[in-house]
């Protein structure tokens, strides 16, 4: 064969790498996922449904959905606003803003939670004022929302900034030159240009908002039926040796992850299609 040696060696390396990667994925990702579902359904569907149907579990699910329903739209708006400001305008402190957007990713979630305790807790900066006005933030829903918003802030902005930078300002300038006002430019030009990226960012933001443990754990206070989100509820059940219950609730979170993955794949596919199909 006249095939150069380097390609055969290349193929061997290729196989070894692929096998390694698959083995790694199998042990660290697939196996735990299977364990979660098999543990949850170990004693059949009945106990599984019972575990999900307890008042505390239902309250945790409701709270998680509520938190996501508040924080995801907020971060959608913040993310779009920040990306718009960063990519369409010049202003002092821009690079500082870009760095700050990444802060929630680089800080430990526990620290993020503590920040809010230090600000709004009974001994915190605003503690006395809040107490005087009978407002409760820490160990209550507002605190959990704040922590979740903080943790999930980067997802939308990080998705949009590179996209909007690449698209530049031409489309917006064209719209303005044709007489469109700010809202019309956003509604008819910018938003359609970023819609797939935005949806993708929102999806990731939602997954994290529902799954966040560390920061929420610090501010929630773990009050059953009141301030327990799904991840916190899983921990409590597990610590109480209620394995079926813990894995049942965990399997719901895992299911959410799977749905997110599928939706993300579909979005990426549409996004690519949209992108390459309409290039200049």
């Amino acid at each position: 064969m006249s095939r150069p040696r380097s390609t055969t060696e290349g193929r061997l390396t290729q196989i070894v790498l692929i096998v390694l990667a698959l083995a790694f994925l199998g042990v660290f990702l697939l196996l735990p996922l299977i364990v979660v579902f098999s543990e949850a359904l170990k004693q059949g569907l009945g106990p599984f449904l019972d575990a999900v149907h307890t008042p505390d579990a239902l309250a945790a699910i409701k709270l998680t959905l509520l938190i996501a329903a508040i924080s995801v739209p907020l971060n959608m708006v913040f993310g779009v606003a920040a990306s718009w400001a960063i990519t369409k305008f010049h202003f002092p402190g821009k690079s500082l803003l870009i760095t700050l957007i990444d802060l929630p990713f680089s800080v430990s979630p526990v620290v993020s939670g503590l920040i809010f305790v230090l600000l709004f807790g009974a001994q915190g900066w605003f503690g006395p004022w809040l107490a005087a006005h009978d407002l409760k933030i820490i160990f209550a829903v507002p605190g959990i929302v704040l922590a979740t918003v903080f943790i999930t802030f980067p997802f939308v902005a990080r998705e949009l900034i590179p996209l909007m930078m690449e698209q530049g300002k031409d489309d917006e300038e064209a719209a303005v030159s044709l007489g469109a006002n700010g809202w019309q430019v956003f509604r008819h030009v910018t938003l359609p240009n970023i819609r797939w990226g935005l949806l993708y960012g929102v999806l990731l933001c939602n997954a994290r908002a529902m799954g966040e443990f560390g920061a929420v754990s610090v501010v929630s206070g773990h009050i059953r039926g009141l301030t327990n989100t799904m991840p916190l509820h899983v921990e409590i059940l597990y610590n109480e040796y209620d394995f079926v219950g813990a894995f049942a609730v965990a399997s719901l979170l895992a299911l959410l992850a799977l749905v997110t993955l599928v939706a993300k794949t579909i979005l990426e596919w549409r996004f690519d299609l949209h992108h390459t199909g309409a290039g200049h």
């Binding site: 489309d171 064209a174 030159s177 469109a180 006002n181």
Partner: peptide, 16 residues
């Protein structure tokens, strides 16, 4: 630009 009533054609067209 909106109040100057000019037609502007961009280098890369900037079509929506």
């Amino acid at each position: 630009v909106a109040d100057r009533h000019v037609g502007f054609v961009f280098q890369h067209y900037a079509l929506f």
